[in-house]
């Protein structure tokens, strides 16, 4: 009982900072700091938010952006985890992939957008590919670090108790690396929103990034903020969802 209410308190505290920020923002503008034409108040944004929601436009843009993030995330993360684990288990794999990663990682992924447009065209595929590429690197680096840092005793135990390479891979190395894999996935999720919105600015006629950029070009600052807020909300929801998944999947590390 007590445990439950303290958990509830923690969740409320979690929401306190964004709500507090909005309240301060609204208050400052109502007190006359700032020009509401350029910096709309949360209440103004809320009105626009409602308009766009009613027309169905917002839902459409949001759905498009979410789909691109989700698809790109899965396409990028799954091979990144697999290759990261292989690198930790097999020296040749490590030697093969290491220079590739070192060379490709620092390239700003948004800079690949023109290339991807050439390869995949103007539709969803190019954006999904960009997200996948951006997700791949933080996940592979974290996965490898997680697997390489597994305590030697667990390798010894697995070997002594007859684990095959397959069992080693699926029951030992994967789970041993899981806490760091999750850290990588969290970074990757944030990165994927960043690159996708940037790509949608210029290379799309749909999605939240498009909504933001288009509103800016039309000088509809309040609409622009709706887009920004939606991205913020999506980020918040996905972070909370991730936390819950982490609690379920990594019970041995659960707080």
């Amino acid at each position: 009982m007590r445990e439950r209410s303290s958990k509830l308190n923690e969740r409320l505290l979690y929401l306190a900072s964004p709500i507090g920020l909005l309240a301060v923002w609204q208050l400052l503008l109502m007190l006359g700091f700032g020009d509401r034409r350029f910096i709309p108040a949360p209440s103004d944004i809320a009105v626009r938010f409602w308009e766009l929601t009613e027309s169905g436009e917002l839902a459409w843009h949001t759905a498009v952006t979410l789909w691109r993030v989700l698809a790109g995330f899965v396409i990028g993360a799954v091979p990144a985890v697999a290759v990261g684990l292989l690198m930790a288990m097999f020296r040749p794999a490590r030697i093969f992939f290491d220079p590739l990663i070192a060379a490709l990682m620092p390239i700003p992924k948004v800079a690949l957008m023109p290339l991807l447009l050439l390869a995949f065209g103007f539709g969803d595929a190019s954006k999904i590919a960009l997200v996948a590429i951006a997700v791949f690197f933080p996940v592979i680096v974290n996965t490898y670090a997680g697997a390489a840092n597994i305590d030697r005793i667990y390798w010894d135990v697995a070997k002594n108790f007859g684990a095959s390479t397959y069992v080693m891979f699926t029951r030992v190395v994967f789970f041993g690396a899981l806490p760091l894999i999750f850290a990588g996935l969290k970074i990757a999720l944030a990165v994927s929103f960043v690159v996708l919105v940037a790509a949608e600015f210029v290379a799309s006629k749909t999605g939240i990034g498009y909504l933001i950029w288009n509103s800016w070009e039309l000088l509809q600052v309040d609409y622009m903020f709706v887009g920004i807020v939606v991205i913020g909300i999506l980020g918040l929801i996905s972070a909370v969802a991730f936390q819950e998944i982490e609690r379920k999947v990594i019970p041995w590390k659960a707080p």
Binding site: I153, V157, A158, N160, F161, G162, R171, K253
Partner: peptide, 29 residues
């Protein structure tokens, strides 16, 4: 099985419950 080792620290896998840990050498075989 020829041998089984008991390590200085338990070396139980933190990600498996006790039942799974104890059964590990049977699962692998």
């Amino acid at each position: 099985v020829a041998n089984a080792m008991v390590f200085q620290e338990s070396g139980l896998f933190p990600w498996m419950n006790i039942e799974k840990n104890v059964g590990f050498g049977l699962m692998t075989r």
